[in-house]
């Protein structure tokens, strides 16, 4: 485990894992798409639109998963001051935001034929929207603080405060929602899901997870490179400065 803590070792290991991860996610994605379109039947209630669920649900899971990952990495940054934790946080933010965005868009595209409107202020949709706003805040913070170490610590605090906030938002939005439109919202999923739907969903979820893991690893590798470039540029600038003096 500690050998991973060294960025150089991490670079080598991640570089070796990455092609396999990408290949596995490509294969699973192909299988999942086949299952989703040719094997899964149309739902008797939702019709063909149930196929949107095969991307909506995995992206929702990944949107939440990446925020959790960012929060765990934030603890790593604040407690152990580990550079890999900084890098993991920074690489996770855009990926999580992208999946949350896809989740919202597919939710709207599913809602239009099902609910007759693009957007419903449904508790789950609203919570995801707040999550996306929090991702945007985190990404804005990364862009504004120049020094990577300081940026990582500032973002960590923001991420952790947001992490505490997520369940509170979910709770309050649930409360607000029942207040304004009592039990009119269509319920999806739960234990009622049929096995012929479950398999494509699971395969797609796994494919998306592997894909995002590959993206995350690649992002971390690039981020380590970026830090090296930054350090070397500063060293060179210092040397030129000394030479000029």
């Amino acid at each position: 485990m500690w050998s991973l803590a060294n960025p150089t070792r991490f670079m080598a290991l991640a570089g070796r894992i990455l092609p396999w991860l990408a290949a596995a996610s490509a294969v699973l994605l192909a299988a999942g798409l086949y299952l989703a379109f040719f094997v899964a039947p149309a739902d008797y209630q939702q019709g063909e639109t149930v196929r949107i669920m095969f991307i909506h649900v995995p992206t929702a899971w990944l949107g939440l998963f990446f925020y959790t990952l960012m929060s765990l990495s934030a603890v790593g940054t604040l407690v152990w001051r580990h550079p890999l934790a900084d890098v993991s946080q920074k690489a996770a933010a855009p990926i999580g935001a992208a999946f949350t965005f896809v989740c919202l868009v597919t939710g709207a595209l599913w809602g239009k034929p099902m609910w007759g409107t693009w957007w419903v202020w449904d508790a789950r949709l609203t919570s995801m929207l707040v999550l996306l706003l929090m991702y945007l805040g985190v990404m804005a913070m990364w862009r504004t603080v120049e020094d990577p170490g300081r940026a990582a610590r500032a973002v960590s605090i923001l991420t952790l405060v947001g992490f505490v906030n997520v369940p509170i938002v979910k709770f309050s939005v649930d409360w607000w929602n029942t207040l304004h439109q009592p039990a009119s919202v269509f319920r999806l999923g739960g234990p009622t899901i049929h096995a012929s739907m479950l398999w494509p969903l699971l395969v797609m979820a796994l494919a998306f997870t592997l894909l995002s893991a590959a993206l995350h690893l690649a992002g971390m590798r690039t981020e380590i490179l970026r830090r090296r470039v930054r350090t070397l540029s500063i060293l060179e600038a210092e040397r030129l400065d000394r030479e000029a003096a």
Binding site: V130, G137, M141, G162, N165, I168, F171, S172
Partner: peptide
């Protein structure tokens, strides 16, 4: 404002 407003929703 961007950082803080989502946290003020509840």
């Amino acid at each position: 404002s961007v950082l803080v407003l989502p946290l003020m929703v509840p």
